[in-house]
């Protein structure tokens, strides 16, 4: 395959992605479109229920059977929607990887975490006898886990939330994916641990030169990892662009609210903290 054919073409191209439940009666995602180029990092921001996670799950093909998905999700030009479970499984964990929000329940409680990481490697790269274990240990230490031998031989319940999220990150990165989807990877963690896990994901992305779709409800968090951001509200993309442009000149009143609540350094001491409602009355501009 020639590289010239790929230059300029997006890695992931999402067009008019819509999701509905209850036989189309409950529409939860409306014509979402975006591109991610190789190595590009895109943030997806919005409050809970705005459709961020649904977008990610739809891209991964992990939505429940009851969901009706329409539109187009192209990976390197090939359509993913309508692909069989087997074909999607070949991509997942190998070219496309994902980190979930809840580290406490994301790991199999009956299996040592080292084996769970090794398993992801073996699933996609067969025949590496004897080389998987050292690779897993290297991976665990690269995600900032000291004493990777002890960690690898631990069960999930023996690790803290931050440690588990690092293990999940190691599982996602062990096959050097081209795109990493992070669904609120730090939300469930302590504030002090959040910053470290965030920095680590940032480093790992740089090292692997992987693209990223980063989902968060927190503009400040997204700004640390991504240069471009999409703003979602009620299942639609309402705003988007480079982070600094959004901070400087938000187009949508909802974005203005997000920006104002994220920039606490601008709040005058003694005055009331701003809330999004000051800038955007939910439902006023929303789709009804």
């Amino acid at each position: 395959m020639s590289t010239t054919a790929l230059t300029g073409a997006p890695l992931l191209a999402v067009r008019d992605l819509s999701v509905a439940f209850d036989r189309g009666r409950r529409r939860v995602l409306h014509q979402v479109s975006f591109d991610i180029a190789p190595g590009q990092r895109l943030g997806l921001i919005g409050e809970s229920g705005s459709g961020k996670s649904l977008t990610a799950l739809a891209v991964m093909g992990l939505l429940p059977d009851s969901a009706e998905v329409t539109g187009s999700v192209r990976w390197r030009g090939a359509e993913l929607l309508g692909q069989g479970e087997r074909a999607l499984a070949r991509l997942r964990g190998s070219e496309l990887a994902m980190i979930f929000q809840e580290p406490m329940t994301a790991l199999d409680p009956t299996m040592k975490v080292g084996r769970q990481v090794a398993e992801v490697r073996r699933l996609h790269r067969s025949a590496e006898p004897g080389r998987v274990r050292p690779l897993v240990l290297a991976m665990l230490s690269s995600v900032g886990l000291p004493d990777p031998v002890r960690i690898a031989d631990s069960f999930p319940h023996q690790l803290s939330g931050g440690q588990r999220q690092r293990v999940v990150t190691a599982m996602a990165l062990v096959n050097s994916p081209d795109l990493l989807i992070c669904d609120e990877p730090t939300t469930a963690l302590d504030v002090t641990v959040q910053a470290r896990v965030l920095a680590l994901i940032d480093q790992a992305l740089t090292r692997e030169q992987a693209a990223c779709l980063f989902i968060s409800h927190d503009l400040a968090v997204v700004a640390q990892v991504c240069s471009n951001v999409l703003v979602m509200l009620d299942g639609r993309v309402v705003d988007g662009g480079p982070v600094d442009r959004l901070f400087r000149a938000p187009e949508h009143p909802y974005t203005a609210g997000l920006v104002a609540t994220a920039r606490l350094d601008l709040v005058e001491p003694g005055s009331r903290l701003p809330v999004i409602g000051d800038f955007y009355a939910s439902g006023a501009a929303g789709p009804q």
């Binding site: 087997r86 070949r90 997942r92 990887a97 994902m98 979930f100 790991l107 992801v120 996609h124």
Partner: peptide, 17 residues
């Protein structure tokens, strides 16, 4: 309905796998 089944699928297992 457990999260680790979703994690396993995201890692490349099919639903049955």
């Amino acid at each position: 309905e457990e999260d680790y089944i979703r994690t396993a699928r995201a890692a490349g297992w099919t639903r049955l796998g």
